[in-house]
Design a protein around this nucleic acid. Structure first.
Lengths: 236, 236
DNA sequence: TCAAAAGTGTTATCACTACACCCATGG
DNA sequence: CCATGGGTGTAGTGATAACACTTTTGA
């Protein structure tokens, strides 16, 4: 049995994949392999298949195009303007993923036609993908201000200066490092490691890692990772 | 030209419509008019048509079933499990609307087969609508803590005790009225009216109304409408 | 030895919380 | 006149923001 007299339409999933390379945010794009807009840069997308949920579709697409799985990803929003795709009506559900850029860098470049672009300096994207990216950035700024999600962008071990640069990059601001350090350590989400990262300075900066138990327990709590007045108006 | 070899599917919109009657939150439900689950209580839903965007579909559905338009409504999330509808694959996009219950009460009851139910005391809902409602409540608690959206639930003129009861209801808590008053007035979003509402007490409580200019300007800013530790963990 | 980045404490200000009494009025 | 809900201020506490010098070490 089916619902009769109702129009069916194509449903796509588009993945907005953010990375951070230590100094700037990056977005993973591919060259679209088919018409329309063949060869143009695009978010990773694909059609939802009959035998998969939309979340599964997002995971499959990410996996197919990047080889990545077990990645932090969440649904952002559906985009449903009538003419967003010139070929035919397609409603797209946008997902946002945060990945550790370093860990997967070669893998992506070697096996797939994907490339990292600086978020400030994207090529022209197809359809309404530009709008999706802006919305995703906006949401990321909002959520990251209150929830510890940016750690997904870092390797397992990271330094406080790296962490701070990541927050400063997202909000395009400078934060006092003493205040920042105090704030993040007060969340108790971090464990100090014994060794140092010597790549960034002579002195070297201590590595930290996430305390997984604390992280799971407190992930949903509301924190204050950056000064309130650095959160740009309009984020949500 | 069309995309070939891709499965098309039904896309529905479901509207989660909240109201507040002065003491408790209500949800507007209808008795579903067709199989499956005919006569069961349901969110207001309908299929997205080829000639409308998904936002337009949500507005149309709200309008058709309640007569309401120009209502605060925003997209919440897409629900896309394979078997969420037993008849066939349907992906649903859930929208959340906040309306002034008093203004439309008769209209709804007279013209449509819709009914307000207390949020704590809902009938069994069809499909995954229960899950949608819970998610919507969760999001509402989050957003309302930082953004002045609950005003959409009130008439144009309202009193501070009413406002406070609304916040207390949402977070299931008691707030000190001096602190609450100071906090909301410090946002500068409210204008004090000259007249009082005498329905709730002998003395009467002054009416307030939104300062539309301030409201538009500051809507997107982040406020603190309720004490931070009243925001339940897990909201987002 | 010096340049470059890491690490560390204190003080002032602001925001939040807790708390209790008087006011106005209809019955 | 009194019961009921409305309105108002202050003091203590905790969180946040501003601020500068010392440490380490590779070159």
């Amino acid at each position: 049995m089916k619902y009769s007299n109702q129009a069916r339409l194509l449903l796509a999933v588009d993945c907005i994949i953010f990375g951070f390379d230590g100094s700037e945010y990056k977005l993973l794009l591919i060259q679209r392999g088919f018409a329309p807009e063949k060869e143009k840069w695009s978010l990773m997308g694909g059609f939802v298949q009959p035998d998969e949920s939309i979340d599964e579709a997002a995971e499959r697409i990410l996996q197919q195009l990047t080889g990545l799985h077990d990645v932090y990803m969440e649904q952002m929003q559906a985009f449903g303007k009538i003419d967003r795709d010139p070929i035919e009506r397609v409603v797209a559900i946008a997902y946002v993923a945060l990945i550790d850029i370093g860990k997967y860098q070669q893998q992506i470049n070697d096996d797939f036609h994907a490339r990292w672009f600086p978020v400030k300096g994207l090529p022209r994207l197809i359809f309404d993908h530009q709008e999706m990216v802006e919305k995703a950035l906006n949401k990321l700024r909002y959520k990251a201000a209150f929830h510890p999600i940016l750690f997904e962008l870092l390797p397992e071990k990271f330094t406080l200066p790296q962490l701070q640069a990541m927050y400063e990059g997202l909000y395009d601001t400078k934060i006092d490092k003493r205040n920042f350090t105090r704030k993040v350590l007060s969340t108790n989400l971090l464990k100090k490691e014994k060794d140092k990262d010597k790549s960034g300075s002579k002195k070297g900066a201590y590595y930290y890692s996430l305390d997984e138990d604390q992280y799971k327990e407190n992930f949903l709590n509301i924190h204050n990772f950056i000064p309130r007045n650095e959160i740009p108006a309009g984020v949500e």
